[in-house]
C-alpha cells in the first residue's frame, strides 16, 4: 500500500516537473513561459519531497521532517523569483503576445519595500 502511494507521488512529481520544463521550452513569449516553471515545478518538487518524507519516515529511523523545510522554502521563494523576473522583463520591455501597459512615471524600483516576500521569513 505504502509503495503504491510512494510510486504515485514520485510519478506525479516527475510528470509535473517535466511539464513545467516543457512549458519553458515550448511556449512562445517570455511572460507565458514564466507560468510553466513557477507553477508546475512547485507542485512537482513538492510531491517528490513529500514522497521522500514518507519514504524515510517509514523506514524505522524516526520521523523525517527535513523535507518539509525544503518544500516550505520552495513555496515561499518560487513566487518571489517569478515576480522579480516578470518585473525585470517589463523593465527591459520584452516583446510580448499581450499588449504591455505603460511604464509608471516613477521607476518601478523606487520603493524597495514593495517586493513581495520581502519580510516574511
Amino acid at each position: 500500500m505504502l509503495e503504491v502511494v510512494l510510486s504515485f507521488l514520485i510519478l506525479t512529481g516527475a510528470v509535473f516537473t517535466f511539464i513545467g520544463s516543457l512549458g519553458l521550452a515550448r511556449l512562445r513569449d517570455f511572460y507565458t513561459r514564466l507560468h510553466g516553471p513557477t507553477k508546475a515545478t512547485t507542485l512537482g518538487v513538492g510531491s517528490l519531497l513529500i514522497a521522500s518524507a514518507l519514504f524515510f519516515g517509514t523506514r524505522g529511523e524516526g520521523v523525517s521532517l527535513h523535507e518539509v523545510l525544503v518544500t516550505l522554502f520552495l513555496f515561499i521563494t518560487a513566487p518571489v523569483s517569478a515576480h522579480l523576473l516578470a518585473k525585470a522583463a517589463l523593465h527591459l520591455g520584452l516583446r510580448s503576445l499581450a499588449p504591455v501597459p505603460e511604464e509608471p512615471a516613477v521607476p518601478p524600483d523606487g520603493n524597495p519595500e514593495a517586493h513581495p516576500g520581502h519580510k516574511q521569513h
Binding site: 514520485i10 512529481g13 516527475a14 516537473t17 513545467g20 520544463s21 519553458l24 517570455f30 513561459r33 514564466l34 516553471p37 515545478t41 512537482g44 518538487v45 517528490l48 519531497l49 514522497a51 521522500s52 519514504f55 523506514r59 523535507e67 525544503v70 520552495l74 518560487a78 523569483s81 523576473l85 525585470a88 522583463a89 527591459l92 520584452l94
Partner: peptide, 28 residues
C-alpha cells in the same frame, strides 16, 4: 533574452533539487 536565461537557470536549480531527492530515495 536575458530574463529567459535567468528563468532557465531558476528552473534548472529546482529540477536539480528534484534529481537529488530522487537520488536520495534511490540510494536510501
Amino acid at each position: 533574452s536575458l530574463p529567459d536565461r535567468i528563468l532557465a537557470l531558476d528552473t534548472l536549480y529546482v529540477n536539480t533539487i528534484a534529481l537529488l531527492v530522487l537520488l536520495g530515495i534511490h540510494l536510501a
